[in-house]
């Protein structure tokens, strides 16, 4: 028999969670500040350059090669950030550095919160909505930070950290649940396998969602610039070209899709053990399937003429909206076999 739940430690965990949220909010402020500041720095730099050289804005050759995406990121073009998304190019961004440091700090405290909750409950920290949200948000932050060590994705920082803050708010405001043991239906090692991969894949999808939204914004901006119109969304200068966004989010989506496929299979195996059938079109199963099919469609779109670029990005966004819908509306309002203690 497992020892009793440690309620005191559970409260410490909640305190950590609160501290982490505050740190994230401050990080978010700095990420936004960075966008504002850097785009104006680049802007004024450019004006000076333009004045000095009296040269017209560099042409955006080669635009529109594939489905509205553009290759405007040719080296040196100031219209978008370096497409390689490596560090070292562009002006120093102090706010961004502070923002990243704060995110690291927040994530460490957040990790401690998740860990103490797990220790307090003597089990994996994903047994109810509160825990899906908090652990999921931690994974989003962690995956983002890990990616940051290799690629300069600070431009999605405000987006990703914003989503983390929303997830934490949803957890503490929407689904507050004290630490508890698991109900018998959830007592299975498949909980560990199935839910962890589901949460990790969703975290990846969260990041690609942010990138797809930016891709759409960038695409329309590139088209505008090409048409000789004024640059109204200057902060997108920090963001790489639509095409490089598309390529990177494709790579992440591919990983997440394999994860989701595994989630679906592990869920089916667990359903077989718990309810006697591996697939029964329970509402939760329906939505897992819908999400899987939409992302399969996304992968197909990437190989279909006329469907790359903008349309693929839309599919990636729709897929993510389905995930959010599945997680919120379906979990809370739809009846089905899936029920979680506490909600």
């Amino acid at each position: 028999m497992t020892p009793p739940v440690n309620a005191e430690l559970g409260q410490i965990s909640e305190l950590f969670m609160l501290l982490a949220s505050i740190a994230y909010v401050v990080a978010l402020v700095f990420f936004v500040l960075d966008l504002v500041k850097s785009s104006s720095t680049i802007g004024s730099l450019e004006t000076r350059l333009a004045d000095e050289q009296a040269a017209p804005a560099r042409s955006l050759a080669g635009v529109g090669a594939r489905g509205g995406s553009s290759t405007a990121a040719a080296a040196g073009s100031p219209a978008t950030a370096d497409a390689s998304m490596d560090y070292g190019s562009g002006p120093r961004r102090r706010s961004a550095r502070i923002a990243v440091s704060l995110t690291v700090l927040a994530a460490v405290v957040h990790g401690a919160a998740v860990l103490t909750r797990a220790i307090a409950a003597h089990r994996v920290p994903w047994g109810n909505m509160y825990e899906f949200c908090t652990t999921g948000a931690f994974l989003v932050a962690a995956i983002f930070l890990i990616t940051l060590t290799r690629k300069d994705l600070r431009f999605v920082g405000s987006f990703v950290v914003g989503l983390v803050v929303i997830m934490l708010c949803a957890a503490t405001v929407g689904f507050p649940t004290p630490v508890a043991r698991l109900i018998p239906a959830l007592q299975s090692y498949w909980l560990i396998v199935h839910v962890s991969i589901a949460v990790a894949s969703s975290a990846l999808f969260t990041i690609t969602f942010a990138m797809s939204v930016l891709q759409l914004l960038q695409t329309s901006r590139e088209a505008k610039l090409l048409a000789g119109k004024a640059d109204t969304a200057r902060f997108l200068r920090l963001v790489p070209s639509a095409l490089s966004l598309e390529n990177l989010s494709y790579r992440l989506n591919a990983v997440a899709f394999v994860g989701w496929t595994f989630t679906l299979m592990a869920g089916a195996i667990w359903a077989e053990q718990a309810w006697g059938r591996y697939w029964g079109w329970d509402t939760k199963e329906v939505w897992t399937f819908v999400i899987w099919t939409v992302y399969a469609g996304y992968l197909h779109a990437r190989a279909t003429r006329g469907w790359t670029g903008t349309r693929a990005a839309w599919l990636s966004i729709v897929g993510y909206l389905c995930i959010v819908f599945n997680f919120t509306i379906v979990n809370i309002y739809f009846s089905g076999l899936h029920s979680y203690s506490g909600v």
Partner: peptide, 23 residues
């Protein structure tokens, strides 16, 4: 490929009502 994509997306849409109405 286009038809496959279309049918895939159609399948996703068609699965949804099963979660809205009792089965």
């Amino acid at each position: 490929m286009r038809t496959a994509l279309f049918l895939l997306l159609l399948l996703a849409v068609a699965a949804v009502p099963g979660s809205l109405f009792p089965q």
